[in-house]
């Protein structure tokens, strides 16, 4: 049964990389069910991330957000800050797709704080870029400028010309 779980996860990932998101979702749901049977929280967390990602490409941003929230919840339980940061970034982008810029900014800010804690300059730069955009969308150009400046500073530091 444990091997079946891993096989389902791998099949889900393969379908995903082939762009077959409906099939990917079915396998990741099966993987999730088996992870729950075993109480395997790490595998459960991976399944939620994979399900969130697949739903983005199915255009079901609302469903993706719910899966990413489960990922976030489990990453905190598992004390995995890198995954927590990634979940916040995914949620920020998903709420941008849902045109909810306030909530997008909340998650991008959470991502920024964790990236700073982890001294992840690339993550910090991306968070600042996203926050600049979110504040522009919310009609707060002064705050947007602060983050755009920070984004420029980090991009120069890490040599990202684009």
């Amino acid at each position: 049964r444990a091997a079946q779980g891993r096989a389902c996860g791998n099949l889900g990932n393969t379908h995903y990389l082939l762009g077959s998101f409906v099939e990917a979702t079915a396998f990741h749901k099966e993987r999730l069910a088996i992870a729950k049977e075993f109480g395997d929280k790490a595998a459960e967390r991976r399944a939620y991330s994979n399900l969130g990602n697949a739903h983005i490409f199915l255009g079901r941003f609302d469903v993706a957000a719910e899966y990413y929230k489960k990922t976030l919840q489990l990453s905190r339980q598992l004390k995995d800050q890198a995954v927590e940061a990634q979940a916040c970034y995914s949620l920020g982008n998903t709420y941008t797709l849902l045109q909810d810029h306030e909530r997008a900014a909340e998650y991008h800010l959470r991502h920024l704080l964790i990236a700073q804690e982890l001294a992840d300059r690339v993550g910090e730069g991306r968070a600042c870029w996203s926050l600049g955009n979110a504040y522009v969308s919310m009609g707060s150009p002064a705050q947007a400028l602060t983050f755009a400046k920070k984004h420029l500073e980090i991009s120069q530091e890490i040599g990202d010309r684009s």
Binding site: G5, R6, G9, N10, N13, Y16, L17, A43, R46, A47, S49, N50, N53, I56, F57, Y89, S90, N93, T96, L97, R126, W129, S130, N133, V136, S137
Partner: peptide, 26 residues
Amino acid sequence: GQRLHLMQVDSVQRWMEDLKLMTECE
């Protein structure tokens, strides 16, 4: 409006491009 819209789309699009190849492996 158009310029701001493009800026917004750009950062999400970059994320989605990365996401296409992002799988959590077993």
